[in-house]
């Protein structure tokens, strides 16, 4: 078998394996019903909001630290000039 034919054979075998790998699954009927009710009632805990809040906290903290550095830098420069 040529290298080209071997490669085509490998790809074909891999695609067959991937098709078997993707066996059909279905959600449990009781899960479907319960989740529908929970979604429409807004009772699902979606971490998206938490991620946004975390991003805000991190940004605020970084801004605070940067502000402290600016203040300290200004204070040092000022003190140095006074001595000079």
């Amino acid at each position: 078998m040529s290298a080209r034919a071997q490669h085509a054979h490998d790809v074909s075998a891999l695609e067959r394996a991937l098709a078997e790998f993707a066996h059909p699954v279905a959600p449990r009927p009781e899960y479907v019903a319960e989740t529908k009710t929970a979604v429409l009632a807004g009772r699902i805990d979606d971490h998206e909001a938490n991620a946004l809040a975390a991003a805000f906290v991190v940004t605020a903290f970084a801004a605070g630290v940067a502000g402290m550095f600016v203040f300290a830098g200004a204070w040092i420069i000022r003190a140095t000039r006074r001595r000079g």
Partner: peptide, 28 residues
């Protein structure tokens, strides 16, 4: 719901996480 569940299941590989994430998808 079934289509998205199947997609999420394929990505995470277990029922428990698939159910949790599928619910989040529709909530979002």
């Amino acid at each position: 719901v079934s289509t998205i569940y199947r997609y999420v299941y394929y990505r995470v590989g277990n029922r428990e996480d698939a159910e949790d994430l599928n619910a989040r998808v529709f909530m979002r």
